[in-house]
Simulated assay, not measured.
Amino acid sequence: MSDLISRLSLNQKTTNSWSLPEAVEGCVRHGIGSIGVWREPLADTGLEKSARLIRDAGLRVSSLCRGGFLTGIEESLRRAAIEENLRALDEAHTLDAACLVMVVGGLPPGSKDLPGARARVAEAIATLAPAAADAGVRLALEPMNPIYAADRGVCSTLGEALDLAEQFTAEQVGVVVDSFHVWWDPQLEAQVARAGKRIASFQVCDWITPLPADTLLARGMMGSGHIDFRHHLDLMTKAGYDGDIEVEIFNAEVWATDPDSVLETMKFRFVSELAPVAA
C-alpha cells in the first residue's frame, strides 16, 4: 500500500480553485509526492518561480497539461499551434516534467472532415517530435472518449494513438492511458499490452452517470462510478508501467468542495479503489 500511495500525483484540475503555489503547498501538507501542472496557473505564477517552488518542495512533475490543438485548417492557425506547442515543450523541460500531454483538438468550426483533422494531427506531431527529442520531453498523445471527438480530441482510442506514436521513437512520442477516456474500449487489454514502454502517463477518475449537462465535468472521484481501477492498474503493471498515477477530476461538485477535504478523500479512494484486495 505504501508503494502505491507513493505514486499518487495530484493533477491541478482536481483542485481547480487553487493557484499553483497553493497546490504545491497542498501536496506537501498531504504527503503527495507528485503534481500534474496546467499551463494556465503556471503562467499566472511564472515559469521560473514555479519551477523553483516545485523543486524546493521536493515534488516530481508527472505531466504538463496541455499541448495539442493541432487540427486547424488555415496555415496561419497551424503555424501558431506549432509555435504554442514549442513553448509548451520549453516549459515542460524547465519543469523537468515527465511528459507534455497532447489533447490533439477537435473538428475546426464548420468542418465535418474527421479524416482530414486526423491527418493534420499526424503532420503536426511529425513536426514536433524532433523538437521534443531536443527538449528531452516526451509528447504524450491522449486518446479521448468519443463524446469529445467533435470539440476536443479526434483521437478516440488507445489503438489509434499508438498507430500514430509508433511512427516515432518511444522517447519522442508516447501515450496517456486515462481511465475515464478508455475504460469502455473492448480492445483495452490488448492495446495497453501493446503500449508497453510508450505509456507516458496514467490518469484516473471515474465515469459517472447520469452525465451532467456539461460532459466536460463528467469526471467523478474514484469509486463514484463504473470503472474497475484495480483491473486498469493490473493491466498497466503487466505492461511495465511503474510511474506516477495522476488523479485528474473535472467536476463542479468536487471543485466547490474545500480542496484539503478533496485531497483527503482522494488519498483514501486512491488506495481503496486501486490497491489489490488482500487474499
Rank of each mutant, 00 (worst) to 15 (best):
L53G: 12
L59I: 13
L10S: 05
L20A: 04
S17D: 15
V61C: 08
L47K: 05
L53P: 07
L10R: 01
S50H: 06
C27L: 03
N16D: 14
E40Y: 11
L10F: 02
T15H: 00
S62C: 14
L59C: 12
S9A: 15
I35E: 04
R60K: 15
G36L: 01
A57H: 11
I54D: 03
E40G: 08
N16R: 11
L47W: 07
S34E: 02
L53Y: 12
L8S: 03
N16H: 12
T14K: 01
S50E: 05
R29D: 11
S62F: 06
W18C: 15
G33I: 02
S62G: 15
A23T: 12
H30W: 06
E48L: 11
R66G: 09
S17I: 05
S62T: 14
L64Q: 12
A43T: 10
V37F: 07
D44P: 02
V37T: 04
C27E: 03
G46Q: 07
R60L: 15
R55G: 13
H30P: 05
K13W: 02
W38P: 01
L47T: 11
A43Q: 13
E25S: 11
V61R: 00
G46F: 11
L20K: 03
G36I: 01
E22Y: 02
R60E: 15
A23C: 09
K49W: 02
V24H: 06
T45Y: 09
E25P: 03
R7M: 01
K49Y: 10
G31M: 05
S34H: 14
I35N: 01
S19F: 03
G26I: 02
S50T: 09
K13V: 00
W18E: 10
S19M: 04
L10T: 03
A43D: 13
C65E: 14
N11P: 04
C27W: 02
C65D: 14
R29H: 10
A57Y: 13
V24T: 06
